[in-house]
């Protein structure tokens, strides 16, 4: 039984978005989903969802039109690699922030 004067801080993590910090800041390319190709979006059925399954950061939603939490998506591209419909394209993040930079 530990002494109550001791906090005994240790490091532990549980599976979930954000448990490795704000990993979105690591990203160089972001995944963009083409809903015309995405199987659940196209069929209206909960099928496939491989991007949700494979995402190591748990940032892809299991919706008919999947969304990606860019706060934590580190841009690893596993979802794009695994998607059987080639519905996910990795686009340089710089393309999205160029306008902001110029302001």
């Amino acid at each position: 039984m530990p002494d109550p004067r001791f906090k005994i801080l240790t490091s532990a993590s549980t599976s979930g978005p954000g448990d490795a910090g704000r990993t979105g800041s690591w990203r160089v390319e972001r995944p963009v989903i083409d809903m015309d190709r995405c199987i659940p979006a196209k069929t209206g059925k909960h099928a496939c969802h491989l991007c949700w399954l494979y995402c190591p950061d748990n940032v892809v939603s299991k919706d008919l039109e999947p969304t990606i939490d860019l706060e934590y998506c580190k841009g690893c591209g596993i979802c794009a690699q695994e998607c059987p419909a080639q519905a996910i394209e990795m686009i340089p993040d710089a393309d999205f922030i160029k306008g902001a930079d110029r302001e």
């Binding site: 532990a12 993590s13 954000g18 490795a20």
Partner: peptide, 15 residues
């Protein structure tokens, strides 16, 4: 849970 995994330089809010 995973014990003593890679721990970042900065503090964080967990899940």
């Amino acid at each position: 849970e995973s014990l003593n995994t890679v721990t970042l330089p900065d503090a964080r809010r967990d899940v």
